[in-house]
């Protein structure tokens, strides 16, 4: 009997504070798997923004520097410039990176800073009670848009991956989802590309995760998965928008997809 799946070593043996059905735990796990895979545990620095992901230091056994709201990319810029041999990533939500931190992320991307941005997009301000975020879908009811988001008043959902991809400093920009095991496997491959981008010093890497927030969507975890499939993915199309290192590995054959295979 061989153990083929276990908790990554870098992920501490602590219970998460996340709500049932929240996808933050999966992002944490994928990050730890990649940190283990590349042996970065001793020289990785995480910079979580403000939001539910702020307790990263409780769960991942690496160095962590907290940033003021929205300023994680600015803090990461400083860390990466002082410690260029360290692996630096930020971990931000849509209220953090998409709203208050938009200026910081655009200029960090434009400067081509060599770190990785992990962007968890759940279309609401999760930690503060489900207010409308810049990424909230049109018509979505939140505590500050009880009748649904109206484009006349509130504008349109902000597409960060598409927004950042054309900038010359950006080496990798992609959007992945986590609502099925097959999508988690694709997300891992994309995260691996983002890690490689930084390790090969090619520039700014940006990976957006579409994530569920059942508590603030007022849905069950099962309904959240359906909501992602039907509504979120229509508004936020998945895909790799830019990958400057693509020719070598993008042409590689697809990994076996066990979701649909008969075992």
């Amino acid at each position: 009997m061989q153990k083929i799946f276990a908790r990554p070593a870098t992920l501490l043996d602590t219970g998460f504070h996340f709500c049932p059905g929240c996808h933050h735990g999966i992002v944490h796990r994928l990050l730890c798997e990649m940190l283990d895979h590349y042996g970065l545990r001793e020289r990785a620095v995480g910079v979580p923004g403000v939001g539910c992901g702020v307790f990263l230091y409780d769960y991942i056994d690496i160095d962590v520097c907290e940033a003021p709201h929205g300023r994680a990319t600015a803090v990461a810029t400083g860390i990466k410039r002082v410690q260029p041999d360290h692996f630096v990533f930020t971990y931000q939500g849509d209220g953090d990176l998409g709203a208050i931190g938009t200026a910081e992320v655009i200029h960090a991307a434009n400067r081509g800073e060599n770190f990785t941005v992990i962007f968890v997009n759940n279309a609401v301000y999760g930690m503060t009670g489900g207010q409308m975020a810049p990424t909230t879908l049109l018509g979505q009811c939140t505590t500050t848009s009880p009748a649904g988001r109206d484009s006349r008043n509130d504008g349109y959902p902000l597409h960060l991956a598409e927004l950042l991809a054309p900038l010359e400093g950006v080496a990798f920009a992609a959007r992945v989802s986590l609502h099925t095991p097959a999508h988690v496997k694709k997300a891992r491959r994309a995260l691996q590309r983002a890690f490689e981008t930084q390790l090969e010093k090619r520039g700014f890497s940006f990976l957006e995760f579409i994530s569920a927030c059942p508590t603030n969507w007022r849905l069950t975890p099962y309904q959240s998965v359906e909501h992602i499939e039907k509504n979120m993915l229509r508004a936020f199309p998945l895909g790799t928008y830019k990958d400057t290192g693509a020719p070598a590995s993008a042409a590689a054959p697809e990994e076996e997809d066990t979701a649909n295979a008969v075992l």
Binding site: K3, I4, F5, A6, R7, T180, P181, V184, T258, A259
Partner: peptide
């Protein structure tokens, strides 16, 4: 032992043995 349950578990509580 396909490990799909372990892939999707947000709390990382599932271990898979083959």
């Amino acid at each position: 032992g396909c490990a799909l349950c372990a892939e999707i578990c947000p709390e990382v509580l599932i271990e898979v043995f083959r």
